[in-house]
Amino acid sequence: MKKQIVIAALTFGAILFGTNHAQAQNTATTTVNITLNDVISIDAGSTAIGNTVDFNYATAADYNSDQTVTKANSLKVTSTKNFNVKVKAGGTSFVNGTNLIPVSVLTIKAATASGTMGGTKNAVVLSSSDQTLVSNAPLGSALTLNLDYTIPASKSSSSDILGKPAGTYTQTVTYTATAL
């Protein structure tokens, strides 16, 4: 009988201890904080990052026709907010020593298959001031934009280009991405 009482007491104690123990475990809480920061990024695979777009004028036909260079994945942007892309030239002219070609000979616009980037896309006649290429593009990851760089025949057959001394005329074109 005594034995049974001891067993019962031990069992009761064990149950109490067990529940207490279990309760102690139940009340332990952990706070999980998820901090989200805004990010905007351009993929280094973008052809618009330290890359070049070249137009070559070698024959009469080159001067008399529209020349278009399509750059796939010109821009690959990841943004946690809607964003805009603007474009500007580093100066008013393509420069070859003292010889100049105005940057306005070049038009930049989204290619017909423009990629995964949304928003309103505009054709931009290049200048040294910021112009909107894409406005209010919805946020997303690795959004691509394929661009057409065009020099129309009306420019290449004009005195803007025709008759200029041979050589390489260069200028920088900067794409600016900002969140909404």
């Binding site: 052809t47 330290g50 070049t52 070249d54 070559n56 004028y57 070049l106 390489t168 005329y169 991405a177």
Partner: peptide
């Protein structure tokens, strides 16, 4: 632009594309 970022075209128009964030 860095030294490597140079137009490759011999005769013509070379555009060096760069990126900027605001």
């Amino acid at each position: 632009p860095q030294q490597a970022d140079q137009a490759k075209v011999q005769n013509g128009i070379g555009i060096i594309t760069l990126f900027e964030v605001g």
